[in-house]
Write a protein that binds this DNA or RNA. Sequence first.
DNA 1: CCGATGACTTGAC
DNA 2: GGTCAAGCCATCG
Length: 109
Amino acid sequence: MQPETLGFFERVYGVARQIPYGRVTSYGAIAKYLGAGKSARIVGYAMNGSHGKDVPAHRVVNQKGLLTGKHHFEGTNLMQQLLESEGIEVVDHQIQNLDAIFWDPAKEL
DNA sequence: CCGATGACTTGAC
DNA sequence: GGTCAAGCCATCG
């Protein structure tokens, strides 16, 4: 596979796959790290094709820590279950203590 | 090539 | 401080 030829999407998958256990990040942070900056929507759109890949999409949330993409998952609470399994506190599809578990690729990488 | 879409972000009221 | 609207950029038809 040659990610560079595949496009921006694979780029997103690569970053998402590097998200540490028990941590989460935002679409904007990934977009900024990739140089897109304002293309946060493209990151989410890319995640739409993350199905079938080892991309922990459940670790990617919006800036508020809200599980916006949960609707695209199989179940309604599957995404929350996965996050809670990693020790992340999630209430009403919203991540608690976000600042503590937030993972910024631009800083960590 | 142009138009439409989208798991977002930020600014304004 | 919460809600509404517009913007932005890459992919697809």
